[in-house]
Design a protein around this nucleic acid. Structure first.
Lengths: 231, 231
DNA sequence: AGCGTAGAGATTGTTCAACAATGGAGCAAT
DNA sequence: ATTGCTCCATTGTTGAACAATCTCTACGCT
C-alpha cells in the first residue's frame, strides 16, 4: 500500500469542509429537538422559523428535508412540517432493528479495535458518574452513547449512521413520556453488567443479557405508550 | 376493535397521496441512474436539468437532496452533484450490512407470513425465466428483488427501506463494471438453492449458503474493482 | 519545460418577491 | 349535528437576482 497517510487526510477532509447554511440550520433544529425544547407533534411554521434564524424559506426548507430524512421531522404535503411523533408500531420496529444491530455489535466485539471497547466502557462510567451527581438528563445521554458504542463494534460506517438515527428517535420517545429518572436508573446497572460480560469474553451471555435488556425496555415504553394514548 | 376497515383505508392513503414535483423529478433521475443511463461519476449540472425537466432550480435542488440522502448522488459543496462512485471501502461496508440484514431475514423465515416467502420464490422464478429468454438486465433486476424479499422476511419497514437503498447502490456497482451476464448467471442457481433450503426449513444450511454467496460475490466485485482502479 | 499567479467565465449558494394550490376555521343553511 | 360555502393563512413552485466559489486559461517567472 502506498501513501496511507494520504487516505487519512482524505478521510478527515469532510470534517474541515465548511458546511452549507442549511446544514447548520438543521443542526440548530436538531439540537432543539433532541433536547426536548421542541416537543413531538409540534408544528414548525416556515415563516416564523425563517424570521427567527434569518434565512430564506428555501434554505429553511432544505434544513427541513434533512431532518425529515433523519425521521426527526415529518413533512405532510401542503400542511407543513412537524416534530415526529413515534407511534407504538414505529417503536416496535425501532427495537426490532436495535436488536439486530446491537446484538451484531456484541458478536463483533472480539474483532473490534480496543478504542471501540474503550468508548463502551467510557459510556458506562459517564452514566454512573452522572447518576451519582443526580444529572438524569446526562444519564440518558450516556445511555444513548453506550448503545451507540455497542453498535459501533460492528465497525461499519453505515451501521454507525443507522444507530445514530435510531437513537435520535429514541430521544423523541423519551421526551414524549418524560420522567428520565425512573426510566434510566435501572438500566445503569445493566449497562455495567453487559459491558463486564463482554470484557470477560462471554459473548453468549452478553447477547442474552442485551436481548432481555431490550425486551424489558421495549415493554416498559410500550406500556407507557398505551397509557399515554388514552388522552 | 372498532372500525377495522378505517385503519386499512388509512394505511392505503400514502399511496394515493399526490407527491411533490420534487419527488417526481427525483423519481425520474432515480430511474435514469438505476437503469445505467447516468453512469457513476457523471456530473449533473443544475441548469441543464432544469431546462430539460422544466422545473425551477429550487425544486431540482430539492430532488438532488433526496437522491443524495439515498446515496445515489453525492453533493460536493460549491462543485455540484455527481452520480455516486462506490469505492472499494464502501463496497465492503455494503456487503457487511447486507450480511447482517439478509442473514437476519433467513433466521426470521419461520415467523414470516406466507406472502413474504411467496415473493422470494417469485423472484427466483422471474430470474430463471429472464435467463432463459436471455434478458440479462432483467436477471439482475430479479436478483435484486430476491435479496430484497430475503431481507423483507424480517418484517420490519425500516429494514425494508435500508435494503432498498443498499440494493439501489448495488446497481451503481454493477453499472460501474458492466457485463451483467457473466456476473449474474452463476448466482441464479444459488438463489434457487438458497430458497429451497429455506423452504425445507434448514435455516442453518441456508445461512451458511447465503454467507458463502455474499462472500463470493463481494470477492468477485472487489477483484474487478481493483482492476478497474488501475485506469 | 515547469511552476505559481491573476483574472475571466461558469456554476453553485442563497435570498427575495410573487403567484398558484391547498388546508383549516368560521359561518350559514338544512 | 352535518353539509356546503367562503375567506384567510400557509405551503408549493417559480423566476430572477446577487454573492461566493470553482475551473480554466493565459501570462510571467525561474
Amino acid at each position: 500500500m502506498r501513501e496511507r497517510w494520504l487516505d487519512e487526510l482524505a478521510a478527515a477532509r469532510p470534517g474541515l469542509d465548511r458546511s452549507s447554511t442549511a446544514a447548520r440550520v438543521a443542526g440548530l433544529l436538531r439540537e432543539q429537538i433532541t433536547d426536548g425544547r421542541l416537543v413531538p407533534g409540534a408544528r414548525l411554521p416556515e415563516e416564523d422559523l425563517c424570521r427567527a434564524v434569518k434565512v430564506s424559506r428555501n434554505t429553511m426548507r432544505e434544513a427541513f428535508r434533512m431532518l425529515a430524512q433523519e425521521r426527526l421531522l415529518v413533512h405532510e404535503f401542503n400542511r407543513g412540517v412537524f416534530v415526529r411523533r413515534v407511534t407504538a408500531d414505529a417503536l416496535a420496529d425501532l427495537y426490532r432493528v436495535r436488536r439486530i444491530l446491537e446484538c451484531e455489535g456484541v458478536r463483533c466485539a472480539p474483532d473490534a479495535p480496543p478504542e471501540a471497547l474503550a468508548r463502551l466502557e467510557a459510556a458506562v462510567l459517564d452514566g454512573e458518574r452522572a447518576a451519582g451527581a443526580g444529572r438524569w438528563a446526562d444519564v440518558g445521554t450516556a445511555d444513548i452513547r453506550f448503545h451507540q458504542a455497542l453498535a459501533a463494534l460492528v465497525g461499519s460506517p453505515r451501521v454507525d449512521e443507522m444507530i445514530r438515527h435510531l437513537l435520535a428517535e429514541m430521544r423523541l420517545v423519551f421526551h414524549e413520556m418524560g420522567s428520565p429518572r425512573e426510566f434510566h436508573e435501572p438500566y445503569l446497572a445493566r449497562n455495567r453488567r453487559l459491558h463486564d460480560l463482554m470484557a470477560r469474553g462471554d459473548l453468549a451471555a452478553a447477547e442474552r443479557e442485551l436481548r432481555s435488556y431490550l425486551d424489558d425496555a421495549e415493554a416498559q415504553l410500550t406500556k407507557a405508550y398505551r397509557e399515554n394514548e388514552r388522552l
